[in-house]
Amino acid sequence: MTVLRANGITLHTQRLDPVDPSRDGPARPTAVLIHGMASDTMASWYFTLAEPLARAGFPTLLYDLRGHGRSERPATGYALDDFVDDLEALLAGSGVTGPILLFGNSFGGTIAFGYAARRPERVAGVVAVESSPPTPEWMRRVAERLHRVAARLPQEGALAGIGARRGPTAARRAADTGRFLADTSITEELPASRLPSTEALAALRCPVLCLYGARSPMVDLAEAVRDLLPQTRVAVLPDQRHSVLVDAPEAVRRHVFAWLTEQCGLGTTTTAAPTTGQPDDRPPHPTTVP
């Protein structure tokens, strides 16, 4: 386990170096993979896209968000700016100084857009899976879901029901999510976050890829994202839900590598199978909060 002190807390991180760093062509941007909120961890990226990116020549950095996985869980500090501050400090502490490609699953995409609005000169592109920039409507949905989950998990039989439907690992993660929501100020702080201005978000010029599941309630945000960021390519995956990253990783990889080639000018192939080692355990299914 690799830990790094960043922004006053300890973050669990994982770095995958390019398999062939001597390959011809210009150096690749560093791919930074950011997971979603509550029951998610870096595992959702580790088992789906991290190794294929490294095999394609991208230095790849993953981490558990504050309060998640093996990272420290402070009682407070859960506004959007705190998560963006963590990312900025993590990059500095990891020695990442060049351009970056940001990948965000669910709320991780919102952190990616928040960072891009703050440091647009550093971001070569954004891939957001089942996500949105930090607009008031998106944050309203996040707040609604946080409060719904916080109210449901303590109810009698809730964890047993999750275990019966999804297995013991899901029940353990749900229990940890319940503790996270009860022991921290996230349900109050995150909805009250200061958001980047619409002007700052609209000024982003980097390529953007947004992936949605056709059966997810998040897909109706695609039009608003394209209105805000016209350069966005949107791909809707048939029959998929909010957990599309975990449920359809091969389809996600195809879209990502095609976009890297066509929109970012980074010629790539995706021949690698996902990682079989285990930094923690298998990715949660599904993520709890958008």
Rank of each mutant, 00 (worst) to 15 (best):
G267T: 15
A117H: 05
T13H: 03
R5G: 10
G108W: 06
Q231A: 01
T97S: 08
A150Q: 09
W138H: 06
L91T: 01
T135P: 07
A150F: 13
W138D: 01
A54F: 11
A200F: 12
A174M: 04
A222D: 03
R15M: 10
P217A: 09
R152H: 12
G157R: 03
L4Q: 07
A224W: 02
R23C: 14
C206S: 03
A6Q: 11
R148Y: 09
E72R: 00
M37E: 04
G57F: 11
S216L: 10
A214L: 07
P29H: 01
L195K: 04
A182G: 11
V96Q: 06
A174I: 07
P207M: 09
G157M: 11
E199H: 06
F47R: 15
A117V: 09
T135G: 05
G267C: 15
S131N: 04
A158D: 10
R141H: 04
L211R: 03
F58H: 00
A143N: 07
L53K: 07
P217K: 05
V32P: 09
L11R: 15
F47Y: 15
F180D: 02
A124D: 10
V225R: 06
R140F: 14
P120T: 05
E250Q: 08
T2M: 08
M139N: 01
T288K: 00
P283W: 08
Y63H: 14
T110I: 04
V219F: 12
A248W: 05
D239N: 12
D64Q: 06
E51C: 15
A200E: 10
P286S: 12
R119E: 03
V236N: 13
V236P: 15
D176R: 12
R253C: 15
A202C: 05
L146R: 11
P74Q: 14
L90N: 00
V219C: 13
R148Q: 09
H285A: 13
W138P: 00
T10G: 01
R254G: 09
R166M: 14
A27S: 14
T276R: 12
I34F: 07
D20M: 12
G125N: 13
S22N: 12
V96W: 04
Y212E: 03
V219R: 14
G77E: 07
I100H: 03
S193C: 12
L87Q: 08
R5N: 09
V129G: 08
P191R: 02
L195W: 05
V84N: 11
G104F: 00
D40K: 06
R226S: 05
L87V: 14
R73I: 01
F107G: 00
V84A: 01
A214G: 02
L87Y: 07
A150D: 02
G161T: 09
T2S: 13
N7L: 05
A251S: 15
F103M: 15
L65N: 06
A214F: 10
T177K: 00
R15V: 10
P168M: 00
